[in-house]
């Protein structure tokens, strides 16, 4: 069996003394693993870095096999992000999130968001709101998406300012006011995908919201430690 696709590097682990186990993220084949022969050599070190876009040629006798990758560099994002601490942390957070997605399970919409976010980070656009959206998209792709279309109590589509931690659905200002201390604030940029913001308090609200549901549906559920990179990123944002 054989397939060829452009994808991103999520991580690389040594395999033996000279080869590397490459974890990649592709549009049509999802999270795919494979062996890169000679992947630990000096020649490949610069290319096999997380975040880099590469052309992957996978070969294996059966689709269930680990298989062997023949890789070729396409766009080396990693070196473009290395001088930006926030972007590097975000890249780690994104890779960690993609890592929890089952192997060989394609998620084209999530892949497009990943690519869009990486592009924005490398070009220096405003991207932090997109990172929050990406986190929520991961939850959605895993089947735990939150519903922000209308108020869970009244059905209103306007003035949605809270999210119910119990149902994961939006709550309008009027319906949520008496319970505001128990509800999660909903930042406006999550209601409109075209909105970009650098407003730190709003972004922190977004990270708090996504973090709550990530913790409930991913970290606590799977009994794994929450992402330390995410924690460092949020601490850095608070200090900005």
């Amino acid at each position: 069996m054989e397939w060829k696709e452009t994808g991103f590097i999520l991580g690389v682990r040594p395999y033996g003394e000279t080869s590397a186990l490459l974890e990649s993220w592709t549009r049509d084949h999802g999270r795919a693993m494979g062996l890169v022969r000679g992947g630990l050599s000096r020649r490949w070190k610069g290319i096999l870095q997380p975040g880099n876009r590469i052309v992957l040629n996978w070969r294996g006798r059966f689709s269930e096999q680990l298989g062997v990758f023949i890789v070729e560099a396409d766009h080396l994002y990693a070196s473009e992000l290395m001088n930006c601490p926030l972007a590097l942390l975000a890249l780690n957070v994104m890779n960690e999130l993609v890592h929890i997605i089952p192997e060989r399970d394609p998620h084209p919409r999530l892949f497009d968001s990943y690519e869009h976010l990486l592009n924005a980070m490398s070009k220096g656009y405003v991207w932090l709101a997109d990172l929050v959206r990406f986190e929520l998209k991961v939850l959605s792709e895993l089947g735990f998406g939150i519903d922000l279309t209308s108020c869970v109590a009244t059905g209103d589509v306007d003035n949605l300012v809270y999210v119910s931690p119990r149902s994961g659905r939006a709550v309008s200002r009027s319906a949520g006011l008496p319970y505001s201390d128990r509800l999660l604030p909903l930042p406006p940029f999550l209601l409109d995908d075209t909105l970009v913001t650098n407003d730190i308090p709003l972004l922190l609200q977004g990270f708090k919201l996504a973090g709550f549901f990530l913790d409930r549906h991913v970290y606590s559920f799977r009994k794994i430690a929450p992402s330390c990179m995410r924690e460092i990123l949020i601490k850095r944002l608070i200090l900005l």
């Binding site: 870095q49 992000l81 290395m82 590097l88 942390l89 890249l91 780690n92």
Partner: peptide, 15 residues
């Protein structure tokens, strides 16, 4: 090392 992990660590230590 000049890797993604190395630079992430370096930025963290700098902070």
């Amino acid at each position: 090392n000049s890797t993604v992990e190395g630079h992430t660590t370096a930025h963290y230590i700098t902070d």
